[in-house]
Every structure is written in C-alpha cells, then in structure tokens.
C-alpha cells in the first residue's frame, strides 16, 4: 500500500475499486447485518407491496391511475413471462411470477435512483436466495408432477436418441439441469448488476474528479466525456435492469413449466 501511495500521489485520478463500491459499512454502527443493500432490499419489498396494494385494494372495472399502471405490468408479465412457458397453468403462477419480476426490477432500478444508487442484486446473496427458492420449487414440482423416478428419467433421458449415446449424454443433462442451471440463473443477474454498477461509478468518478475535484485545461474534456458517458450508461443500465428482471422471471417460468410437463 505504501509503495502505491508513493506512485499514486493525491492529485492523480483513482478508479473506484470493487471493495469501496460493494463492501459497505453498516448503517447503524454495531448492527453488522444492516447495510445499505439490506435496507434497499427491504424498501423494494415495501414499495412493491405498496404499489400493488394501492392498485388492487379496491379495483375498479375501468382502471385509473395506479391501477392502470399495475395492470399494464400484470399484462406484460402474463403475456411475456407466464403464458409462453406455462400455457393454461399461467394464471395459477402469476402471483409468484409477478412478485418475482417486480421485486427484482425494484432491486435493480435502485441502482439508478438518486441517493439509493445501489443495485441490490450486485451482492450475490440476494439473487442466490431467489434462484435457490426457484430451484427447490422446480425439483419439488417435477417430482410431484412426474414422479420421483419419472422426473429424473424425463430429464436425463430425452426421447429420440440412439440408446448407447445415453451413457455419454445423461451426465451432461444431469449437470446442466440440476447444478449449472440454478447457478447461471443467479449469476446472470448478479454479474450484470455488478458490472453495471462498476461502469456507472467509474464514469461518474471520472466526471466528478476532472471537472470538480481537479479542474485542469487538459483534464476538462475528459471530465466532459465522463459526464456524457454517465448519462448514456444510466439510460443503458435502466434497459439492462429491466431486461435482467424480465429474464430472471422468464427463466423461473421456464423452469416451472419444464417441471409441470415433461419435454416432448
């Protein structure tokens, strides 16, 4: 560290490190578990509950205001997430999928909301808990709807292959469905949010440093680039945050659908 500080004097730009950005101190000193991501996760849950409570507590036949917005969200999840994979079972699973989509979306969008500015899912524990829950549900539903032997048989021995090849392919199916799928489910969301937060933090640090902390004639254009890139990437991040929430719910729906009906 000492050698670094000698080479890196006070008036040089330092990019934010993951440790600074993600290893946040507790909000109340002494209560170690209560950090900013935890607060934002709880806040997101309250916001999602409040939003749908306000929308559907006393629903009108002709929707207005909040109910209108919530219905658009519901229709989106039903038509794009639930129905393509669940078909006629879609309505039974809407409660889970709708909550999942809006909770993850609220978590993600916290990354660009001023003062919050931290995507909750960039701590892997949060998406991991959701992915593990979906995984347990997937295996439970599969065993229940296809039988304990039938589920593993349908999963590991897809019909229509020459018999000897099963020895080679069944391990791939097993590993892919039961170990790698839940892992990628969580990591996809986590990695996107982590990288997005790093990018935004980097570009806003560039803008802040070169325009406010250390204004020089040569540095100013770099600062302007930093500010412009921050704005562009904020818009891009909002798209990614929406897309990842959609993908997370879509994969959950896909896993549930795959457990309800054996692949044909």
């Amino acid at each position: 560290m000492n050698a670094l500080t000698v080479l890196n004097p006070q008036d040089q730009f330092k990019a934010p490190t993951p440790d600074e950005l993600f290893n946040l101190p507790p909000i109340i000193p002494g209560v170690d578990w209560f950090t900013k991501p935890v607060l934002l996760a709880l806040l997101s849950a309250v916001i999602v509950i409040g939003f749908f409570w306000a929308a559907f507590a006393s629903p009108k036949i002709v929707p207005r205001g909040v109910q209108n917005a919530a219905e658009v969200g519901y229709m989106f999840v039903r038509d794009q997430v639930a129905r393509p994979f669940l078909g006629k079972d879609a309505d039974r699973w809407m409660g889970l999928l709708l909550s999942l989509f809006f909770l993850v979306f609220a978590w993600n969008i916290m990354g660009v909301i001023p003062f919050a500015q931290f995507p909750v899912a960039s701590h892997i524990a949060f998406p991991a808990v959701l992915a593990i829950s979906i995984y347990v549900l997937k295996v439970y539903l599969g065993v229940r709807h296809q039988g304990p032997i039938g589920y593993f048989k349908n999963m590991m021995f897809p019909p229509g292959l020459p018999k000897p090849i099963y020895i080679l392919l069944s391990p791939i199916e097993f590993l892919s469905n039961l170990i790698i799928a839940p892992f990628t489910h969580a990591v996809r969301l986590f990695a996107n949010m982590f990288a997005g937060h790093m990018l935004l933090a980097f570009f806003s640090m560039v803008g802040f440093w070169f325009l406010f902390e250390h204004l020089t004639p040569l540095g100013a254009p770099i600062g302007v680039i930093g500010v412009v890139m921050t704005i562009i990437f904020t818009a891009f991040e909002m798209f990614i945050q929406f897309l990842q929430a959609f993908l997370f719910a879509m994969l959950a729906s896909m896993y549930i659908g795959g457990s309800l009906h054996a692949e044909h």
Binding site: P84, F85, P171, I172, E173, F174, L175, S176, N177, I179, I180, A181, T184, M250, L251, M254, G258
Partner: peptide, 13 residues
C-alpha cells in the same frame, strides 16, 4: 427460448 437459454448451460456441463 428454452433452446437459447439451455445452450450455454449444456455447453458448460
């Protein structure tokens, strides 16, 4: 969709 989202997982496995 299920093909597209299964391929990386199969390749990794």
């Amino acid at each position: 969709a299920s093909a597209a989202w299964s391929i990386p997982s199969y390749l990794l496995a």
